[in-house]
Amino acid sequence: MAEVLVLVDHVDGTVRKTTTEMLTAARRLGEPSAVFIGTGFDAARDTLARFGAVKAYRIESAEVTDHLVAPAAEALAQLVERTSPVAVLLPSSLDGKEIAGRLAIKTSSGVLTDAVDVQPTDGGVQVTKSVFAGDFEAVCASTHGSPVVTVKPNSIAAEEAPAELADEVVEVTVSDAARTARIVERSAKQQTGRPALSEAAIVVSGGRGTGGDFGPVETFADTLGAAVGASRAAVDAGWYPHSSQVGQTGVSVSPQLYVAAGISGAIQHRAGMQTSKTIVAVNKDPEAPIFEMVDFGVVGDLFQVLSQAADTISGS
């Protein structure tokens, strides 16, 4: 059976949920081969095997990890050359999309980004993606080379399928050109103890209506075990970090439940949350466009509504 390369998304060997989702999608297309770049493979091994990876290519050279995306694209291109995979799956993250862009040019392959579904076709791959702020769904295919597909987190349900995993350390050659963008400093994001925004099953977001006080939004999020997001207005005002921004120029989320508190629902925000399964909004303004798309809405003051809801849930 033909191989499907999956670029492992991990932090020092802790495999992110996106990877298990990509391995699940890869199994539909062929035999998943994990491509693990960096250190910490031993910590990742079990998870990769549990979700069906048959092979793992380990690339541990610091030449690859100390530089931005270009060496990773070169390493993957060498593996594509060697294995002629049915497809290469990468996470739809900043790095993932850029590696995909470079890989596509290197291997003369079509690139498809932000896939919410991946299915096999006659000898090929079809992906589904949301376009135009989530108003349309497009089914796309690559017609050239080994399709390079970036997969949107939280879109495909990860399913276990334990496999015998054989790993192999791969030496790759990195050109001088690929080493020109150096990462000179890296500081890990402060841990909030909450789930990662792009992977969370529940997201609670605050906007202009918070007036800068995210306390009730955070408390309510913690009651539900949710991640906290913010609208662009809240981020621009300096109330919440940009890494938490939900929308077109921030993170695009697709959780089981999305709660918008004090967010009017401009198209740029909708673009980042419209594919959420259930949507709830709390807003003072009954005319706020967000109410047009909710499964449940409360017209009222978010401070009172969220705290009463949190108390009710905690007490029950």
């Binding site: 709390v282 809405g297 409360v298 017209v299 509504v305 809801a309 108390d311 009710t312």
Partner: peptide, 16 residues
Amino acid sequence: QGEIVTDEGQGGAALA
């Protein structure tokens, strides 16, 4: 559009 309620003191409980 789903159900929209106006908070008259019990909006949070309805949400819960």
